[in-house]
Design a protein around this nucleic acid. Structure first.
Length: 323
DNA sequence: AAACGAGGCAACCGCGTCTGA
DNA sequence: GTCAGACGCGGTTGCCTCGTT
């Protein structure tokens, strides 16, 4: 039959996690890896529900979590992606390395949602209203996560792993490689998922590398194929790159409900379709209207944001490209 | 300095989907 | 094919902190 019953709820701790609990959970996961959340508390000696452990790990304890304020570029990206995907926070988070769905959701609910409403009310061009003179978003408190949790030491930028594997990185499953032989490196780790699509192997430690190199190699192929792509590459300058500018194509908001209704179970998660719509449109632009490369695009475009964000990091590009 | 209100964030809850027997 | 449990996700809640009076 099925699996055994979920964790019994009696006698379990609830509420805020203690530093000791954090330590126990972190060390257990370092030793045994993620997953099997149900049995984890018992094995680790925690009086917590497995769900709670999972949430704590994903949203707070993972070493690759990016702490600190959301940058203006990230904010723009969130807005764009929210316009595209709606409240699919995990997917949005998947495009923002180091950010969790919960963090983005909270940020939206507390900042961006209001900002968008304000903008809608007051018309356009009030985009900078909530920013300081440096163009940074201004929140009432403007405090960092370190301020909130002094016991949590945020990794320094130089030590911080460049790409967080958020849950939503799953959306790499939309990748359908028409010609696997053209894809070096990371694509060796591609595996077929049970929805019929290809999904990048996301095992700890190597997945960001795979993910990134996949995107880059695909991206390079396009550049080879299309002259117009060279313009795209210019925009891809590692120092100058702005996430927001990458999303400046004015793709329409997509009604997620409609997308859901169209989904069929073969490859098609609604989000996958959304991704395809997104990428097709964008790539049509990038390729000067040619659809020659469209098959490759969904993954490319979606990963592209991870890629660019990743490359924004000090050493991200080096690690990514050169192991 | 104290009280109050608002904002922000971590965590919980419930539901839908996936998976294994 | 069916069922039950695990997992993942989004919505919501409650607590803590900060700002204002």
């Amino acid at each position: 039959m099925g699996r055994s019953a979920c964790c019994a709820k009696e006698g379990l701790n609830k509420g805020a996690w203690t530093a000791h609990e954090d330590k126990v959970l972190s060390e257990y996961i370092k030793l045994h890896g993620e997953g099997r959340w149900r049995n984890l508390p018992k094995k680790a000696g925690l009086k917590r529900c497995g769900k709670s452990c999972r949430l704590r790990w994903l949203n707070y304890l993972r070493p690759d979590i990016k702490r600190g304020n959301i940058s203006p570029d990230e904010e723009e990206l969130i807005i764009r992606l929210h316009k595209l995907l709606g409240n699919r926070w995990s997917l949005i988070a998947g495009r923002l390395p180091g950010r969790t769905d919960n963090e983005i959701k909270n940020y939206w609910n507390t900042n961006l949602g209001k900002k968008i409403l304000d903008q809608q009310r007051q018309g356009s061009a009030s985009n900078l209203k909530h920013r300081n003179k440096n163009g940074e978003p201004v929140s009432k408190k403007a405090k960092t996560m370190e301020d909130m949790s002094p016991n949590m030491t945020s990794p320094s930028p130089s030590k911080m792993p460049p790409v967080v594997r958020t849950k939503a990185a799953k959306c790499t499953k939309v990748f359908i490689n028409p010609d696997p032989h053209k894809l070096p490196l990371g694509h060796q780790h591609c595996e077929e998922n049970n929805r019929g699509g290809l999904m990048l192997d996301r095992h700890a430690g190597d997945d960001h590398t795979n993910n990134g190199s996949s995107s880059l190699s695909s991206f390079s192929n396009i550049a080879d194929q299309e002259n117009s792509s060279s313009d795209f590459l210019v925009d891809f300058d590692m120092n100058e790159i702005s996430l927001a500018s990458l999303l400046n194509s004015d793709f329409p908001a997509i009604n997620c409900d409609n997308v859901d209704q169209n989904g069929d179970n073969s490859l098609s998660h609604s989000v996958d379709q959304t991704a395809q719509i997104f990428s097709e449109e964008m790539l049509q632009h990038l390729n000067g209207g040619s659809h020659d490369c469209v098959q490759v695009q969904p993954n490319l475009v979606l990963n592209f944001h991870s890629l660019t964000s990743f490359l924004d990091g000090d050493q991200g590009g080096e690690e990514w490209l050169g192991e």
